[in-house]
Every structure is written in structure tokens, then in C-alpha cells.
Design a protein around this nucleic acid. Structure first.
Lengths: 147, 147
DNA sequence: CTTATTGTTGACCTATTTCATCAACATAGT
DNA sequence: ACTATGTTGATGAAATAGGTCAACAATAAG
């Protein structure tokens, strides 16, 4: 019952971007270093975030990536869907047809409740919430911690 | 973000047992057949449920397994813990020491909220709830569906 | 006491997924 | 041109999930 690193790294990457808003494109290399993510791995998380309309990229020197949407408009649910797909704890919750028991299976109803509970948190939380939490912790930026 | 089959199969097995309460030991073979679980696999789920004090077993002919706890005292959380361990979506939620970022990581706070949300559902639901839901669906027993 | 029937245990296998690296390529600034 | 960056695809190691099989232990029935 683990969230994939794709979602976790992707979320941290977007948080890092939000912390540098208005400073122009940010190098993937810098995001990787500050958030302690392998650059090679981070590169693969960028594509779905671009096609999902959350960020855009600039190639070449002085390139990098920037937020397209405002931090308060980026819900964690959206990131999760883009990078990991549905968080249904069981396949049948999303696709009843994969199991003939679906229509009368009472455990399936519970797994659906579990999914809804998780969804609730991820829908309620935005990148801006993370930024504010970080500020509330007295950490205006992450660079002071990861040199 | 998937629940393991251990938890799912184990829960269904316990539901099946609850539906046959007072009828003496139930064969693993029958549970496997009615809940469509491989017998060989089900055998491995029995051990942790016994050591967890949820069921007991009787060897030999006329043997089988029986519930020790009452269905209303068996929370899904307990089953999950026995068969799958913690449902923390990220390791650091349970063990902050696995990552030096834990103390000031705001995403970790969110993953903790996600875990708590799931925990809430699993703590609130008992095997008896499943039995009642099944009855409410007009399915007094499962045998009528899986011949 | 023997036998058939059941649960118990551990070794083993396979497929999938996760996580990650590397290299070739595309693009844009200098 | 050259260099710095993002883009993409091939590849692979490691972990985990999911499941099978066979030897063993216990016990009821005859």
C-alpha cells in the first residue's frame, strides 16, 4: 500500500518550483539536487507534468521548467493521477468488470470508501498549501537546507 | 497504491467464516472455493490470522478453522496489519529516521494525513459490518452464488 | 493401529513493478 | 559552431507480489 516515488518526487519537484516562482525557468539539475532526486529519474517525470498542463519547459542554455498553473490551482490529486494513475486500492473499484463478483461484493464497497477517503485529502490539498506549510515551519525556501 | 491480495483475500476469508458462525470448523478448501481463492495461497494467510488471535484451527478430519473473536470485534485495520503491515503510503510516515528530511518535510505531513484517512475507514469497519451489508444486499450467504 | 483427511510449514518459482541509469537526440542561446 | 539544456527510448537491477508444490504433523474414524 505504497505511493509510488513518481508521485512523491513529482510533488516535491512542483513544491520546489512553487518556491521559486517568478524567478524564471529552474534547471532540472537544481530541482534534483535540492529535493534529492536522481536527475535521470526526474527527467521522466517532467513529460507527464507538461502534457498535463502543469508545467512548461524551455530548452537550451538558460532553459529549465516553470509552473503554468498557479500553485493554488494544483491539487495533489491531479499530480497523482498524472504520475501514478488512479489510487484505487483495488482494480475492481475503478473497473468493476475485471471481477464478476463486483456487483455483490461487500468488500469492494469498503475499498471504495478507502479510496474516497484518500481522494478527499488529495483533492483538498494544493501546492500552495504546501508552500504555506513550509513557511509556517519557518522554512522560506529549501535552499538553506540543501546546499 | 494497491492493497495486497493478502489483505483482500484474508478479509473475504474472514467474512466467509463469519457467515458460517456456529456451524463448527470450516474447511479451508470450502473457503477457497466459495471466495475464489487458491487453496495453497489461502493456507499462508491462516498462520498470521491464528497468531493474531482472530481464528483458531483444528487439524485432521472434520477439522478446519473457526473465528475466535466476534465479528463485531474484528476491525479491518487489524486484518490489514496482520497480513500486510502498516498501510503508510510512504515509509517515512512510520519511521521518520529513514529520511533526514522527515523533520521539515511538508509532503510527509500530507502523506500522514492520507494514512490517517485510510486508517479511519479501516478502523471504523468490522467484519460484522460486512455481514450486515451482505444481508442488506439480500445475500444471506455466499454459497448460493458460488456453487 | 492404520488410514484418510485435514491443517502447517518452508522451499521454490515466476511475473510484474519500481526505480533508476545511460546514451542518443532535439533545441536554443551565445 | 558550440555548449547547455530538456526529450525520449532502451535497458537493467532489485524488490515485491502472487502463487505452487511437497514434505510434514495431527487427529478422527474404522
Amino acid at each position: 500500500m505504497k505511493l509510488s516515488t513518481r508521485t512523491r518526487y513529482g510533488t516535491r519537484a512542483l513544491l520546489e518550483l512553487a518556491l521559486h516562482q517568478g524567478e524564471g525557468p529552474v534547471f532540472l539539475k537544481d530541482i534534483a539536487r535540492q529535493q534529492q532526486i536522481s536527475l535521470s529519474y526526474l527527467e521522466h517525470l517532467v513529460a507527464p507534468l507538461i502534457s498535463g498542463g502543469i508545467i512548461r519547459s524551455v530548452k537550451g542554455p538558460k532553459g529549465g521548467v516553470t509552473l503554468v498553473k498557479k500553485p493554488e490551482d494544483i491539487r495533489l490529486m491531479e499530480i497523482t493521477l498524472l504520475l501514478e494513475g488512479s489510487i484505487a486500492p483495488v482494480e475492481c473499484v475503478d473497473n468493476p468488470d475485471v471481477c464478476e463478483r463486483s456487483t455483490h461484493c461487500v468488500t469492494r464497497d469498503i475499498w471504495t470508501e478507502v479510496k474516497d477517503a484518500m481522494n478527499g485529502v488529495l483533492e483538498a490539498t494544493t501546492i500552495q498549501d504546501l508552500v504555506e506549510r513550509q513557511k509556517a515551519k519557518g522554512l522560506p525556501g529549501s535552499s538553506m537546507y540543501y546546499i
